[in-house]
Structure formats: structure tokens, C-alpha cells
Write a protein that binds this DNA or RNA. Sequence first.
DNA 1: GCACTTAAGCAACAGCGTTGCTTAAGTAGT
DNA 2: ACTACTTAAGCAACGCTGTTGCTTAAGTGC
Lengths: 391, 391
Amino acid sequence: MGCVTSNDFPSLGGVAGSVGANLPALRGHNTALVLGLLRAAGEAGVSRLELAARTGLTPQAVSKITARLRTEGLAAEAGRRASTGGKPATVLRLVPGARHALGLHLDRDELTAVRVDLAGRAVAVRHAPLAFAAGAEQVLGTVEREVAALLAEDAGPPVLGVGVACPGPLDHTAGVLHRVTGAPEWDGFPLRDVLAARFGLPAVLDKDTNAAALGLAQGMSAGTGSFGYLHLGTGLGAGLVLDGSLYRGPRTGAGEFGHQIVQLDGPRCSCGQQGCIEALCLAAVARGDLPGAARALGVGAANLVELLDIDRVLLGGRTVLDHPEEFLGGVSRALAAQARTRGSAGPGARTAVSVALAPGGARTVADGAAELVLAPLFGGHRPVRQTGQGD
Amino acid sequence: MGCVTSNDFPSLGGVAGSVGANLPALRGHNTALVLGLLRAAGEAGVSRLELAARTGLTPQAVSKITARLRTEGLAAEAGRRASTGGKPATVLRLVPGARHALGLHLDRDELTAVRVDLAGRAVAVRHAPLAFAAGAEQVLGTVEREVAALLAEDAGPPVLGVGVACPGPLDHTAGVLHRVTGAPEWDGFPLRDVLAARFGLPAVLDKDTNAAALGLAQGMSAGTGSFGYLHLGTGLGAGLVLDGSLYRGPRTGAGEFGHQIVQLDGPRCSCGQQGCIEALCLAAVARGDLPGAARALGVGAANLVELLDIDRVLLGGRTVLDHPEEFLGGVSRALAAQARTRGSAGPGARTAVSVALAPGGARTVADGAAELVLAPLFGGHRPVRQTGQGD
DNA sequence: GCACTTAAGCAACAGCGTTGCTTAAGTAGT
DNA sequence: ACTACTTAAGCAACGCTGTTGCTTAAGTGC
């Protein structure tokens, strides 16, 4: 019988149900894979043979793919490696400046807009005050002005699209906002399509925490692996990257970390429930009890680690950035305490999950928003089952 | 029997990076997709044109694929639909009896072994007492006897492999057990490879909760979607199906639901921490306070729903099965309370997540273990990039 | 300077889904 | 009955994919 194995191709996201694959899809998959490896290699570059080894494709296939990428200007040769006894390998690198993407971070009181290259590095950054609650027209005006400024950069490469990150809740698939706290008139606003129409560019909408997590995922070495990004600002939310890809949940509702209940019958939260992490954290911060806030956050992080087996916890958001030491310390203490309870011998033992501040500081979300546009180019690094070579 | 070797069940994780796809992979993907749709259609069957519409492939491609499946005996024609103005459609159905798979549930005191067909229906079931803590040789002897009995079925179809479900922790990728509570000698035991060698069949090892969740995922209508399976027996664990595929985490550690902390400074748990759901639940059950136990479980379920945006919660395990009404009621009350706090107007509104007992009763895990073998055949229903792309 | 090793490309090839057309098998109108 | 139309499905040719076999390029080591 023929081999009946499943092979997954990376998702473009939002597609309902499973979809068959044809030759263009195959080609796109492999191209994205190679581009992703080129990107991950960064300045150091990769040789064709290394690409072949990592993708499982034949060297000849890699040669064909990289030749296409070079003619499109996305990749270039960049010197040679030292010989290892034979012809020295030619190093290939991504050409970061071949394309750009825009990232918008619409926060409650500020807009951050970035123009990034294919490596995800910002080549232009703009800030502007914003009154998100002031209504659509005013906000759209500000957005349009800042984006126009970024697009006006003289003779830059093609811009692939605009990634837009907002506070939730919203629907990533439909590109529609839901009832933003304190700004009811946005409920149901099709922000993605409106912006796409105004700029004549593809647009992607996602929650700020999701965008940040996606951007941070790019920075991590392993394409696979799981981590959580915890964002403590005016509220508390999380972005989850599971097995190397952003998990949004069926309704873009995943990552509502703030209203995890960690204290039965605890203090009342603004959401109506009792004992939510967010309520505990914000109350502690308000009364100047940073260790208490950090501890509440740490317990939530420990729960997250326990439930999802994640490798790493990254912290961000204004409140965290205002007091980085306290929060890092509190969370890592909570995770260390948790790790101590999981036996310390045998192959099942694991050390405490590492905690760190999310790199990028105040620009984490905007950079991540641009990544919403870039990520599909690079295949999302999802593990794919190896081929079942015919009989 | 062709290509069904242990190579067909590669460790899905652990692979370094992503893998390229070639023509056999493409073919395997589409074949699995079609097989999955045939399975989902069940007795009713599907026409070729419907398959084409759902996969996005051309009718001609579907004809070729289904022709291959028919010659392999995996699919068959089964009558015709009523005409809708033209030639009536030919109905295709999966031939469930074409292959079988075995599922083993090794619990602490009992072994359940099933032989299932391609539809996942049990065609033979065996039970045997087991002393998991009594050591490897004794357990393996019992397993071998029961499996031999199942394999001896006269002239059955080829058996694709053996799925093995155990209490955690363990490593699905390596097929190795970790320190099972109360049975330290199992720590590091390569159960998967030992069983594969003894039976001469591919074997897959996973946690009982994961196996159960995988099996339950098969039963659900939508191939995509997320749900959680909560298992309350001697311990408390969870199996997570996210976006239609089982989430195990990097170290098969996901789903450690029992030690989610929901009460800061709560009662001490056997794990060393305080306020774990498991501790609260078990203590409540021990003192006959079923509503209290159900409430603790409900709060945990609500946290799960909030964090992962899941569609559905399924309950199982002995303790739940002993008092189904109490737990169903308690958990659904907790979820309803949570839903009330999320505004009730606008497109973002969602009704309370549905709660139900996991179908299958005491055989949920064993059936799911068999599904560990079957699932790769059917493609896992993962969303896949749409065709075309181009530049 | 010869043998060897490693890198990469050229050309022919097998196999995938697609396209264009044909055949099969019904319904609906006259 | 007969034609026209609709829908389902197969046959044959095709374009394009990654693969295979071989050749060329460019180093190292004795």
C-alpha cells in the first residue's frame, strides 16, 4: 500500500478547516522554509548544503530555491566559508532591505508606528499621542498621518503590509474590534479592512499581547518551543506561543491571563469575579506593594508553566518596565519554588523556567505588529512531519 | 504490509527545525486529508465532488486519490445520492475494517486493552487487573498476554500499531516513562520501544489524559476548534486540544492541571505547594463535600477557558463518573458565572462554554490510546495554507 | 602534481495536481 | 419519445515540483 502519512504545511491563519495542497503550495512551503532559515541565520548566513540538511530537501532543490530567491532580490551570496577539505561553501544571506513592513501599536493614549525590514529591525519609528476613546475619525486621522509619513520614506523597497496591534478583545480572523474598555463606539469596527482600504496595503489585526509574543518568538533561537509573554500595563494579558506558533484560540480570545482566578473568594475584580490575578496585581501596585504584585504575577506564571509546559516566560508592559527588578525577582522566585516541588532526580527533572524582560522595551508591541505581516513569509517554523518516502 | 513500519510514527517533536516537503509528502498530505473527511462522514459517506469542495482540490485530483484508496481497500463506493438535476453523485465511504489498531490503557490497578477499526470503534475489549507499582516484568507479562489475545483474532485485518496510555509524567517523544508516583522503578523505562520490540508493531506512548483528549477530538464534529478534557481520578489532569490538534508541550508536560494554584496560601498539597486545585478537590471529596470539589474544579475550568479560549470542557475520570451530576452542575455553574462577567452585548459576546461528560465512560482512555495510532493516518485536521500564493 | 573531498550546477526524469475534453447518467421541456 | 440541459466522473496531455545521475569548480593533503 502507499504511504498514508500526514504532512502539515504551515498555516496562513484563519482558514476554516483543512485544505488540500498543490504544487504552488508545495513550492511556497519550501520557499518560506528556506527564507525562514536564512532569516534565522542572520548576518552569519548559511550555506546551501546546510539549508539542505536542515530542510531535508536535496542540495539541488535548495539550489533551485535559492536561485529564485536571489533573482527576486530576497537573498544574496555573501562570501565563503573556510574550506573543510574541499570546495569552500558559499554563504547565503537574507537581504533585509528587499522588503519592508509596517507595524502599528494603537495603545489607549499613544500610537507607535514602525517601518521594519525583513529581519524585523526598525528602520523608522514614529510616536504620536492618541486618544483611543475619542472615536474612530480622530484616531484614524492620526494613524493615517503617521503611516503616510512612514510610507513617504524616499524610494524605499516595497511595503508588504501593515500589522495593527490593539488592546483586546478583538477578532483577528475578521479583523474587527470588540468592546474596548472605555471606548464602546469601537465595538464591531472593521479596523483591518478600513485601514487596508485607506493605505491600499494588506492589513492584519491582532491583540497587542499576541503581536508582542509573535515578535518575541522571532527573536528566539529555536523555531519550535513554547513561551508566554506576560504584559502588565493598565491591564494584564498574555501572548502564548505554543510549539513555535502563536496560539490565538478560536475567537482570538486566548491569553486572557489577567482574569485567571488565583484566590478563591479573593478581592472583587472589575470584571465581576473574585481573586483575579489582575485585581491582585493592580491593587498591590496601587498600595505600593510591589513584592505582592510580583508574587501574584509569579503564581500566575507558575500556573501557566505548569499547564502548558512552556520553556520561558517574558515580562513586559509599562508597570513591569517601571520596576523590572521587583517583577523579575518575584516571578523567578515563584517559578523556582514550583520547580523545587517537581522531583529533582531522573530524566523528568527540569530546572526552573527562565524569566526575562521582553527585549524591545516600549517598542515590543509595535515591532511585533510588523511581524504579523512578516511571519507568513517565513513559514512560521512549525514542525512538519518528515516525508514517507514511497514504497 | 507496506510502509507501516515504526518510521511511520516519528517523534513529532524533537525534530530540529522544520522540514521541507516533496512530492510524496504532498501526496501523503492530500491522501490523509481525504481519508480524514471520509472518516468524518461516517456511514453517510461523501461524494467526490463534496470532497473536492472541502479540500479545495480539483474533482479530478479527488478522483485519483479516491481511486488509490479504493484499490488499497481503505475506501469503497456505497450507493448513490438522489439526483439534483444531473447525474447522481456516487457516495464514497471509509471501509472501517480495512485496518485495525490496538489501544492500551495502563492504569495504576487495571489494564484495559482494545482493538479498534479505522472508525475508532472497538471490535474487541479486554480487561485485566494490574499492579503498576509491582514492577516491569509483571506488568509486561500481563500486557503481553492481553495483547496477544487481541492479536490472535482470527484473520483480522492488518494491525497498524499499538497506542499506550499511562499516567504521567512521561516523554511522548522518546517513549520513556518518568517517575510515576509510587512506582520509582519505572523511571526512565523505555516502554514504547520495549513494547514495539515485543509485538513487532509500531508503538506510541502518551499520557492517559492526552490519549483521552485525542480520542475525544475525533468524535467532535469540527476538525478544528479547541477543548479541554479534565480527568479527576486518583489525581487531576487535563488533555488539551488546541486548534484541532493535541498540545503536548515541549516535554509532554502540558496538561498538569491538578497543580494549578487557585487559592493563594491555601491548604498544602502533596506536591509541596499550597492551594492547588487537586488538593482542594481531593480534600473536598474526602470529606464528602462534592459541591466544594465541583466548585474548585469549576474555577479551574473557568481559568482554562479564559486562558485558552476553548470551546468545550469534557469531564471524565473515576471520581467524576461516580458523581456526574454534581460535577457537571458545579463546573457549568462556574463557567456560567464567568460568562456573565463578559459583557453580554456586541459581537464579542459569548455564551458559556458547554460542559459535558466525556463519552466512552471507563474506556475513554483506551479508545484514545488506539487513536494515537490512527490519528496520523487522517491528517489531524490541521489548517493548511491555501493554494496559489504566487508573488 | 596527483588523489581526494566538498560544493554546486546542468540535464533528464518521475510524479503530483491541473486543464481540456469526453463519457455517463440523470432531470425537464415539448 | 426525443431533445436540451445539468451534474458527476474519467481519460489524456500538460506544467511544474523536487529528485537523480553526472559534471564542473575549488579547495586540502601527501
